[in-house]
Amino acid sequence: MAAALAYIALADLDRVSMLAYSDTVKDVLPLTRGKNRVLSVLRFLENLEPSGAETRLQAAATSLVHRATRSGLVIVLSDLYDQQGFREGLDLLRYRRFEPHVIQMHTAAEANPTWLGDIELEDSETGDRRKLTITERKLRQYKQLYQEFLESIDHYCRTYSLSCTRTTTDLPFDELILRMMRTAGMTA
């Protein structure tokens, strides 16, 4: 998804930079321009690995505003599972006159889990484990909590007129691109 968006921008001769983050910025692709730079973009994305740390958007946003010499369009591609909250990071970008665009990605199982009974859950980022007994009631409460989380993202983006796209990982990226372009009125 990130590669596709970067290619579109490079093809329009826009300058593109990439920041990979977890609790801090892990890797940076400096500003680059030109369609012929797409290979370096792909190579950057291929080399990214899960860091094993929690998500902190605010740290990444702080790093970005310090590095960037000019403001511009910022596409945040994340699940937004930020223990500290995603608002601070996006607020910082807004305050510095960046134009954030949120693409939230999650799996279908995250929104609608079906596990019941005794189970051990492992955080894929941090490796933390929890031994839980999931009942029907708990499952209902989880789904309600997750729905409230999604609604809070929608509410934030609506309040500050931010573009927000939500998708699941099983949706092909080209379909998502087309859907985003149709939403923006760029194509029929």
Binding site: Y81, E120, E122, S124, E125, R130, L132, L145
Partner: peptide, 19 residues
């Protein structure tokens, strides 16, 4: 004790809040 099933999730954020 019976070995529990293990399930990997992207975050424990919501489960922690729930329990």
């Amino acid at each position: 004790k019976i070995r529990l099933r293990r399930q990997t999730v992207p975050t424990l954020l919501f489960w922690d809040r729930l329990f």
